[in-house]
């Protein structure tokens, strides 16, 4: 379980994170929802140790983030983070060299699923293709948790559908997934749990099927209440 407790962070005089607390369980797909600038990406970066926190704690299976934990948690940022001069095959090799949790078979499977050309250079990829390769890099690691920052942002409709398929597959099963997105439409039926972020904190935290059974509301309905009410 990833446990985030009361995290605070200031940036340029503004409170980006203001006491956000939540947990991410294994075997569940959790989605962090919020308007632009709500701090969603910052939360993911903080979990990954890419930005320091003013206060609060983040524990992954009881441990604070450190170098070994990068074998337990994979991060798929909102853009591809490999050198443009590298070929896709070299990128895969790089990951294999550094990560013990790298699963080369899974990588092959995903490369084929997304129809990616291994000889292409990273700098030449279109946005959609780059997003797909980004997913390959993140999901081919045998990690217990996967964090994804806006996996659908700026992607064409068909690529989005393909990416959404990944969520329904065995690639995600048993893992704890935390993603952020604006495109709630694409994931409405996929996620188990929704965390609504407002003013740097989590203001609604619910199981989606439960809200549907008990209150007959969709995630979008709750979002309207929170952000427009």
């Amino acid at each position: 379980m990833i446990k985030v407790v009361d995290i605070h962070k200031r940036y340029r005089g503004r409170s980006v994170l203001n006491g956000a607390s939540f947990t991410v369980e294994k075997g569940q797909i959790t989605c962090l929802i919020g308007i632009n600038g709500a701090g969603k990406s910052t939360v993911l970066k903080a979990i990954m140790g890419l930005t320091p926190l003013k206060s609060g704690s983040i524990l992954i299976d009881g441990q604070p983030i450190d170098k070994n934990l990068y074998e337990q948690v994979a991060f798929v940022p909102d853009h591809l983070t490999m050198p443009p001069g590298m070929k896709l095959s070299e990128g895969l090799q790089f990951m294999q060299d550094f990560y013990q949790s790298w699963n080369a078979n899974r990588a092959e499977e995903l490369m084929t699923f997304f129809s990616l050309d291994r000889t292409e250079r990273i700098g030449n990829l279109s946005k959609g293709t780059a997003a797909k390769f980004n997913l390959v890099l993140g999901l081919s690691q045998d990690t217990a948790y996967v964090l994804m920052d806006e996996p659908f942002s700026g992607i064409d409709m068909f690529s989005r559908g393909l990416i959404a398929e990944v969520f329904s597959s065995h690639l995600i099963e048993d893992r704890g997934v935390l993603l952020t997105t604006h495109e709630i439409g694409e994931v409405e039926h996929l996620i188990d749990r929704a965390l609504l972020m407002k003013d740097g904190a989590i203001c609604r935290d619910f199981q989606c099927e439960q809200i549907r059974s008990e209150e007959g509301k969709s995630i979008v309905d709750v979002m309207r209440e929170v952000y427009q009410g």
């Binding site: 075997g27 559908g161 329904s168």
Partner: peptide
């Protein structure tokens, strides 16, 4: 996979 829903 066919229905594009969460395995859960």
């Amino acid at each position: 996979a066919m229905l594009k829903i969460n395995p859960n």
